[in-house]
Design a protein around this nucleic acid. Structure first.
Length: 804
RNA sequence: GCCCGGGUGGCGGAAUUGGUAUACGCACAGCUCUUAAAAAGCUGCACCCACAAGGUAUGCGGGUUCGAGUCCCGCCCCGGGCACCA
C-alpha cells in the first residue's frame, strides 16, 4: 500500500516551522558548524532540479551534524539583483521589484515543499535596502582604502545589454549574458583593485581545503608570472620601449619588438614613428575588427612596421618595431620582444614578416632546427647557444644570470605580472545597488556619509537602459542633485549601479547576524560562526564569485572587521543535473523537469532520495523519470513494514546489519557519497523484510538512519510508534562496536589468479590457517593435481592465491 | 592547442583505493494473486555454451604484478573550463 505523501509532508513541515526546530542561535557551549550552499538567483524559470540536488545533499549533512549535537547554521537567501531579473521584467513588462518579489515568493514555496532544514528566520535578500545598505557601506570602505577608483579605460561594451562587462564576463568575445558580440568602448568606470590581493589570493589557498581542481583554476586565472621589464632605447630618438618577458634568457635571439595596437606604448611612440600613417590605419582597422564577427579561426598574423628600431643591449643589434594585434594592450606592458626561434606565435609572425629567426637554446634531443617543434616552444629544459656569456648554461640558470646582468646594467627591472585584471564595478543599468558616491566639481568623488545610507534605489518612470549607455538613473534630475558632503556645494549622485556580484560577495557574513542595523554583522556573531565550514557551489563560479568574495573578505579582514582571512574553510562542487537526453535542461529544448510536478506526484522524500541516488554527487547525471519509482517503492515498503514492528515474537536478527548501515551512511555522508548511502539503506530494508517480525529497537534505529534522507516519512512512523518527540531533533544513535564485529570472514581462494573457491573462516584467522584451509579445499585440490605450488600469497581477511 | 573530469550489462551506476567485477535500483522475462488489468509479491537477468564444467568481458593497444576497472606508456571517443597571456 502506498502512503499519502500529500497528507504527511505538509503536516511535518508545518510542525517543524511552528516549533522553530531548525532555527539556530549562538551557543558558546556547543560546537558550531556552518554549512553554506550558494544562494539561488530567483529567476522567473523557478527552482531547478539541480538546486534540489545540492540543497538536499547539504540538508542531509546538516541534519546529521545537528543530531550529532552540533550547532548547525544552514541558511538560505536570495541573490536577486542583476540583469536576468531586469531582462525578465522588461520582457514581461513588470517592474523588476515586482518580478523579484514574485520570484522570491515562488522560490520560497518551492524550497519549503522539499522539507529542507534551512533557518528561514535568517533569510537574506540582496535587494532589501536593509541588506544593500551594507553592500554600499563595504564599497565605501574599499573606496576609503583606495581600492575603488575610477578609470577611463577601454571596456567591453555589449551593444544589446547596453552595459560594460568585466573581462571575466566576456566569453569568447561575446557577452556572457546574451551572447552578443562585444565591442571596445571607452567609458569612465568604477574599478575595484582586486589585483592588489592577487598574491594573497594565490598563496592563501594553502590555508584552505578546496578541491584541487578549484584551487588550480583560481591559480591559473590569477596567472602570476615572474619576469623582467626590459627597456630598449629606440635608435635615432630619445624614446624607449619597455617589454615584459619571462624568458630573458632567449634575448640573444630577439629579432623584433611588437606593440599592441591598443597599448599605451603605441600611443606614446606614434608621433615619432616614420610610418605613422600606416600604423594609424592599422590600429583603426583593429578597433573595427573587434566589432566584426570573428567567427573564423583566423590565426594568420597581421601587423605593420613602425619604421622604428629598438636596440638590443646584449647584441647591439637594431631590431624592427612592429604593431600587431596578437599583442594585447592589457597584458604586461602591452609590448613584447619577439624571439621566433622559441615561441610559436613569434615564429608565425616572423615568417609572415620575413624576419630573422635565431635559435639560442638546444632542446633535449639536440634539436637545432629552425624552431623548436611547435609543441616544445616553451622548453622546460635546454642549453643555451649563440648567446655569448650564457652559452652552455641550462635555461633556468641562464634566465637568472641574464636577469641579474640586465638589472645591474640598468636595462631592466624584475616584475611580477598577473593575468588577473581589476574588477569593473559599474553597471549602467537599473536593477542594482546604487553606487553611494557624490561627485563634486570642487572636491571630486565623495562618499555618501554613513548616516545617509542606504542610498535607496529610486523608482523611475522608465528603467530601460538608454542607448547612450547612461544608467536610467541619469534621468532622475531631482534625485541626482544633492549637496556635496564635503563642501556643501552642488553635487551629483553617481548614477551607475553595482554588478550582481556585489551582494553575493559578503552574504555569508550577513547570515550570522541578519537583522543587525548597526553593523553588517556583530563581531561576536562573526567570531562564533566564521569561517564557513563547508561551501558548496557550481564549478562555474570558481573564477568569478568565489574569487570576488575571497577578495572582499580579505579586505574586511585587513580592516579588522571579520575574524578570519579566508571566508570558506572547505569548498566542494556538485555535478550538473542534465535532462533525460543528457543535455542541459533548457526552456527552448523543452526538456526541463519542474521539481513541483515531481514533488506533487511522488512526494518530497522520494524526490530528495532519488536525487541522492541517481549518481555520484560530484558528477553530471541525467534525469531518469522511471528510476524515481524505485525510490518511492523503497519508501512505501518502509511504510508498510511498520506493521511488523513489535509483533511477538520480536527478533533482533537485524541489529548487526543496522549498526553496520549506520556506520556506512555516516561515512558516506562525510565523503559526499550519497548514492551509496541510499543503496545501503535499501539493502538494510531488504534484510528487515525477510524477518517475520521486527524488534521495536531495531525499527527505531532504522528510522533514525533514514531520517536525514526522508525526514517526513520517518517523523510520521516515529509518531506511529507512540513517540511525542520530533525525530529530527532526537540525538543521533551511536553505533555499537559489539554489533560491528564479524564472526567469520569470506576468504577467496585463487589458483593462478582465478577464483576457485570461497571459504568462510573465523575472523582474524592467521596466515598459516588460511593457507592450510585453502590447500585442503576439495575444489582447489582438483586444480592442483599434478602441479607443484610455487608460491602462495595470503592477504589476511581477504584471499589466498596459489601460484603453480 | 592547453588544463581538468569521464568511458564498466539494455539503462543509472557499485567496487573497502591493487585483492570475488557488475552491489543497489530501473527496464525486461516467467510465475503467484485477480474475472481481467493495475498495484503488490516471488524467481531469473553481463556474454558464449541446451545444462554443468569451462571460457570471455570494465573504450582500444602494450606494460608492471601472484593478481589491474584501479598503477605506468601510447592511442580513440565524450563532457566541462580556458585560449594569440609574452
Amino acid at each position: 500500500m502506498a502512503y499519502n505523501h500529500q497528507e504527511i509532508e505538509p503536516k511535518w513541515q508545518k510542525r517543524w516551522e511552528d516549533e522553530g526546530v531548525f532555527q539556530v542561535t549562538e551557543d558558546p557551549n556547543k560546537k558550531k558548524w556552518y554549512t553554506l550552499i550558494e544562494f539561488p538567483y530567483p529567476s522567473g524559470a523557478g527552482l531547478h532540479v539541480g538546486h534540489v540536488r545540492s540543497f538536499t545533499a547539504w540538508d542531509i549533512a546538516s541534519r546529521l551534524k545537528r543530531r550529532q549535537g552540533m550547532n548547525v547554521l544552514y541558511p538560505i537567501g536570495f541573490d536577486a539583483f542583476g540583469l536576468p531579473t531586469e531582462n525578465y521584467a522588461l520582457k514581461n513588462n513588470i517592474h523588476p521589484r515586482q518580478a523579484t518579489e514574485d520570484n522570491i515568493a515562488n522560490f520560497t514555496l518551492q524550497i519549503k515543499s522539499l522539507g529542507l532544514s534551512f533557518d528561514w528566520s535568517r533569510a537574506v535578500d540582496t535587494t532589501d535596502p536593509k541588506y544593500y545598505k551594507w553592500t554600499q557601506w563595504i564599497f565605501l570602505q574599499l573606496f576609503k582604502a583606495g581600492l575603488a577608483y575610477q578609470a577611463e579605460i577601454p571596456i567591453n561594451w555589449c551593444p544589446k545589454d547596453k552595459i560594460g562587462l568585466a573581462n571575466e564576463e566576456v566569453l569568447q568575445g561575446k557577452c556572457e549574458r546574451c551572447g552578443t558580440q562585444t565591442v571596445q568602448r571607452l567609458k569612465r568606470q568604477w574599478m575595484l583593485k582586486i589585483t592588489a590581493y592577487a598574491d594573497r589570493l594565490i598563496d592563501d589557498l594553502k590555508t584552505v581545503d578546496y578541491l584541487p581542481q578549484i584551487a588550480q583554476q583560481q591559480i591559473n586565472w590569477i596567472g602570476r608570472s615572474h619576469g623582467i621589464n626590459i627597456t630598449y632605447p629606440i635608435a635615432d630618438t630619445d624614446k624607449t620601449v619597455t617589454v615584459f618577458t619571462t624568458r630573458p634568457d632567449t634575448n640573444f635571439g630577439a629579432t623584433f619588438v611588437a606593440l599592441a595596437p591598443d597599448g599605451q606604448t603605441t600611443a606614446e611612440l606614434l608621433a615619432s614613428m616614420p610610418q605613422q600613417a600606416e600604423v594609424k590605419a592599422y590600429t583603426e582597422l583593429c578597433k573595427q575588427k573587434a566589432e566584426l564577427e570573428r567567427v573564423q579561426d583566423d590565426k594568420e598574423k597581421t601587423g605593420v612596421f613602425t619604421g622604428l628600431y629598438a636596440v638590443n643591449h646584449l647584441t647591439g643589434f637594431k631590431i624592427p618595431v612592429y604593431v600587431s594585434d596578437f599583442v594585447l594592450g592589457g597584458v604586461g606592458t602591452g609590448a613584447l620582444v619577439g624571439v621566433p626561434g622559441h615561441d610559436l606565435r613569434d615564429f608565425q609572425f616572423a615568417q609572415k614578416m620575413q624576419l630573422k629567426i635565431l635559435r639560442v637554446v638546444v632542446g633535449v634531443n639536440g634539436d637545432t632546427s629552425e624552431i623548436a617543434r611547435p609543441e616544445q616552444v616553451q622548453e622546460e629544459v635546454g642549453t643555451m647557444v649563440n648567446s655569448d656569456f650564457l652559452n652552455g648554461l641550462e635555461i633556468h640558470v641562464a634566465t637568472e644570470k641574464v636577469m641579474e646582468h640586465m638589472v645591474e646594467q640598468g636595462w631592466g627591472k624584475r616584475v611580477v605580472n598577473y593575468k588577473l585584471r581589476d574588477w569593473v564595478f559599474s553597471r549602467q543599468r537599473y536593477w542594482g545597488e546604487p553606487i553611494p558616491i557624490i561627485h563634486c566639481a570642487e572636491c571630486g568623488p565623495q562618499p555618501v556619509p554613513d548616516e545617509q545610507l542606504p542610498v535607496v534605489l529610486p523608482d523611475v518612470e522608465n528603467y530601460k537602459p538608454t542607448d547612450t549607455g547612461e544608467s536610467p538613473l541619469a534621468n532622475m534630475k531631482i534625485w541626482k542633485s544633492v549637496a556635496c558632503p564635503n563642501c556643501g556645494g552642488h553635487g551629483e549622485r553617481e548614477t551607475d549601479v553595482m554588478p550582481n556580484w556585489a551582494g553575493s560577495s559578503w552574504y555569508f557574513l550577513r547570515y550570522t547576524d541578519p537583522k543587525n542595523d548597526a553593523a553588517f554583522a556583530s563581531p561576536e556573531k562573526l567570531k562564533y560562526w566564521m569561517p564557513v565550514d563547508i561551501y558548496n557551489g557550481g564549478m562555474e563560479h570558481t573564477t568569478l564569485h568565489l574569487l570576488y568574495s575571497r577578495f572582499w573578505h580579505k579586505f574586511l579582514f585587513d580592516q579588522g572587521l571579520v575574524p578570519t582571512s579566508e571566508p570558506y574553510a572547505r569548498r566542494v562542487s556538485h555535478g550538473m543535473v542534465l535532462a533525460a537526453d543528457g543535455k542541459k535542461m533548457s526552456k527552448s529544448i523543452g526538456n526541463v523537469v519542474n521539481p513541483d510536478d515531481v514533488v506533487a506526484e511522488f512526494g518530497a522524500d522520494t524526490v530528495r532520495m532519488y536525487e541522492m541516488f541517481m549518481g555520484p554527487y560530484d558528477e553530471a547525471v541525467s534525469w531518469d523519470q522511471s528510476s524515481i519509482k524505485g525510490v518511492r517503492r523503497f519508501l512505501d515498503r518502509t511504510y508498510n513494514l511498520s506493521e511488523k514492528v513489535g509483533n511477538p515474537p520480536e527478533t533482533h536478527k537485524a541489529t548487526h546489519v543496522l549498526h553496520q548501515t549506520l556506520v556506512k551512511i555516516q561515512d558516506d555522508i562525510q565523503d559526499m557519497k550519497f548514492n551509496t548511502a541510499v543503496s545501503a539503506m535499501m539493502m538494510a530494508l531488504n534484510e528487515l523484510e525477510k524477518l517475520p517480525s521486527i524488534a521495536r529497537e531495531d525499527w527505531e534505529l532504522f528510522l533514525h538512519i533514514v531520517n536525514p534522507f526522508a525526514p517526513h516519512l520517518t517523523e510520521e512512523l516515529w509518531e506511529k510508534l507512540g513517540q511525542s518527540t520530533i525525530l529530527s531533533t532526537e540525538p543521533w544513535p551511536q553505533a555499537n562496536e559489539e554489533y560491528l564485529k564479524q564472526d567469520t570472514v569470506r576468504i577467496i581462494v585463487q589458483v593462478n589468479g582465478k577464483v576457485r573457491a570461497q571459504l568462510d573462516l573465523p575472523f582474524g584467522a592467521g596466515d598459516n590457517e588460511l593457507e592450510g584451509a585453502a590447500l585442503a579445499n576439495e575444489r582447489v585440490q582438483e586444480f592442483l593435481t599434478g602441479k607443484i605450488p610455487k608460491k602462495v600469497i595470503v592477504v589476511p581477511g581477504r584471499l589466498v592465491n596459489i601460484v603453480v
